[in-house]
Each structure stands twice: as C-alpha cells, then as structure tokens.
C-alpha cells in the first residue's frame, strides 16, 4: 500500500513541477504571431508552388501581413479572387492584376521539324540540352523530354504524343512559372491571358540566321521583319534574328499572323476569319512568295 502511495505522490509532484515550469516558460518565451498570418494562409490555395516568389504559402502570408501593402504581390495560383480575400482580411487594397498563362513558344512538331538523330540519353531536357543539340537541326526548340510536365504542380501541362510538344491546359494553368524555370531553353513564357483568352505570339525561339532556321523547321521565325512593318502599334521587335510581340502593346489585330511567311506567329482562341477578310489575306499570300527568299541575303 505504501509503495503505491509513494509512487502516486512522487509522480504527482514531478507532474506539478513540470507544469509550473512549462507555464512559466510559455509565458516568458511566448512569441507573438500576428493572427492574421494564419487567416491569410487559410485563404491561399496551399499549393506551395513558389509562383509568388516566396517560400510557400505561409511565407507569402507572412510577407503580405508584414509588408503592410499588397503592392507587387500576387498569388498566381489563387489569382485575383485570393488577393481580394487577403485584402479584405488585412483591410488593404488589392492590386489589379491581369490573369496570365504559360505559353509554349515552339511549334516544332514531328511534322514541322524533322528528327535527324535519335537521343537515347537520360530522359531529361536539362541533360539533353547540355549533351547535344537535340534530335532536330534546331538548337533552340523543344527537346520533348517533358521537364516542364514534371515541374507542374497543377497538372496543367502535358506532352502531346502526336506533336511531341507540351500543351498547356488554360483552365488549370495558374502561371506560377515552375515550367519556365524547368525549361533549359526558356521556351515557355508567362504571358497575359488576353481579352477573351485571345493571344497573338511568335511561336518560335530560334536565334539562328534565316537560312539555318529555315532548314531546321517549317515554322521557324527567320527574322524577315514583315511583321514589324505590318504592326501599327510598334508591338513587334526583332532581336538576335528573332521576332517578339510585346503583349502589353499588342492590340490583337492579327495582321502580323496573316503576313508571316513561315506561320511562326500564332493567334489562339480567335473565331475563324470572316470570308471578307480573305481578299487581303490572299494578297498577303501572293506578296510573301518572293519575299521568302529575301532573308537569305545577309
């Protein structure tokens, strides 16, 4: 009987002492954490994609609360809706942001860009990029090993087995930029989604001179400059033998798409062209034939 009593009393005493120590410690060493951080973290998608530029969702929540303003902050996965919620919690103004999407700037499908060798090294774009120029004569285009697919946390990018190119699912893509970082050739670009999801862009990143690019791929940009002349808004520039359309200046008129002799400019989500537009399009087609040769002169 004594034994049990001693055990109960001694254990009880230890428990009591420990409780006192813990109580004192929790009061003395308490770290105050703004409760709003937890609230903000709750409205974030918890994808921890890193698209915001902070280490995970909690890191972003902390940054939002501590900065005291939402300027330049955007959760690409949660989008404008999440930012509005955060603004409501913090009593701040959310910055208006344009929805964006990842765009694959290579159209070198098996048909457009013939495979001249077979790569059988490690199935990773990074390795393929470092060890060889890829399976085609284009040393800039998609390597097709799918590093971007592996990098995507939203299941938004997939390889199309027919074309051998990645395709972005616009609904799922949050423009977090993980694929952009994963691509060793910087083919993927984050661009504004555009009005009614309509976009016009140069679907090529080949910086070779015209004749070389021309041989490598049917739909390569040869930097002929026709689009630059055609554009009324100065949205197109040609640098390093490659045209680029500035999405902020582009007014989606599609004139450049019509004049591109190599069909390197792509316009997506547009309704089919109206028949009456056909006449100028045909004219452009006529005009382009002799000019295809023109960029060869260097």
């Amino acid at each position: 009987m004594d034994l049990i009593l001693v055990a109960v009393i001694s254990l009880g005493a230890i428990g009591l002492i420990a409780a006192v120590i813990l109580y004192v410690a929790s009061k003395k060493f308490a770290v105050y954490e703004d409760p709003r951080i937890a609230q903000v973290a709750e409205v974030l998608p918890q994808a921890n994609c890193g698209g915001c530029g902070f280490p995970g969702c909690s890191g972003f929540a902390e940054a939002c609360v501590k900065a005291g303003s939402l300027e330049g902050k955007l959760c690409p996965a949660g989008g404008q809706a999440a930012m509005e919620k955060i603004a409501a919690i913090l009593g701040l103004q959310a910055e208006a942001s344009e929805p964006k999407v990842a765009v694959v700037r290579c159209n070198g499908s098996c048909e457009n860009r013939p495979r001249i060798v077979k790569y059988d090294g490690a199935q990773s774009c990074k390795v393929a990029h470092a060890t060889c120029g890829g399976e085609t004569a284009c040393a800039f285009g998609c390597l097709g090993c799918g590093d971007c697919v592996k990098a995507c946390r939203f299941d938004a990018i997939h390889m199309n087995p027919e074309t051998g190119l990645p395709e972005v699912d616009e609904e799922k893509c949050t423009a977090c930029g993980a694929c952009v970082k994963a691509c060793p050739r910087v083919i993927i670009e984050i661009r504004p989604k555009g009005k009614n999801n309509r976009r016009v862009y140069v679907s090529c990143v080949n910086k070779d001179k015209g004749p070389v690019a021309m041989k490598a791929c049917k739909v390569s940009c040869i930097a002929c400059g026709k689009c630059v002349k055609e554009c009324s808004f100065e949205a197109i520039t040609v640098e390093n033998n490659l045209a680029y359309i500035d999405p902020n200046k582009c007014r989606l008129c599609r004139k450049c798409e019509a004049v591109c002799p190599k069909n390197a400019i792509v316009a997506v989500n547009f309704p089919p062209r109206k028949p009456k537009v056909e006449a100028p399009a045909a004219e452009a087609a006529k005009a382009e034939t002799p000019k295809v040769e023109a960029p060869k002169a260097e």
Binding site: G121, A122, S124, K126, V127, A130, T131
Partner: peptide
C-alpha cells in the same frame, strides 16, 4: 542508370 549524365549536369 544515367549516373554520369546527371552528374555532368550537376558538375557544370
């Protein structure tokens, strides 16, 4: 396993 392929990449 493509050991060297990956190591080369890491090394560079």
């Amino acid at each position: 396993r493509p050991l060297l392929d990956m190591i080369r990449l890491g090394k560079s």
